[in-house]
């Protein structure tokens, strides 16, 4: 069971209050019409799936109901930091 610090509520809460939002910092293409099928497929489906440091979105579903980002190690599951959407992580890995 993870204990996750919500940067909006500024509290540690249990994993079950949150839902996972997938990889963070994926920009929606600014001009989708101009995109090739390959680039669109890449945006929709392809992920870094990092083994190690991973930046990901979480949603505090039964709390403030807001999204935020977390930097987590996908091997040890340790959450290294959480930060608000729109800001940048302070910890980065080799392939993140």
């Amino acid at each position: 069971m993870l204990l996750i610090y919500c940067p909006h509520c500024q509290e540690y809460r249990e994993e079950e209050e949150f839902s996972y939002g997938g990889e963070a910092h994926i920009m929606r293409p600014l001009a989708p019409d101009a995109l090739s099928d390959k680039d669109w497929g890449d945006y929709l489906f392809f992920r870094t799936n990092a083994r190690g440091i991973h930046h990901e979105m979480w949603y505090h579903a039964v709390g403030c109901r807001r999204y935020f980002n977390a930097t987590r190690d996908t091997v040890t599951y340790e959450i290294l930091e959480t930060y608000k959407t729109g800001t940048q992580p302070t910890i980065t890995g080799a392939n993140s």
């Binding site: 069971m1 993870l2 994993e15 079950e16 839902s19 996972y20 799936n49 990092a50 083994r51 991973h54 990901e56 987590r72 996908t74 091997v75 040890t76 599951y77």
Partner: peptide, 13 residues
């Protein structure tokens, strides 16, 4: 589990 992970263990919930 709901989140990505390479640890060969799962969550209790």
């Amino acid at each position: 589990d709901s989140y990505n992970g390479y640890g060969q263990r799962g969550s209790f919930n």
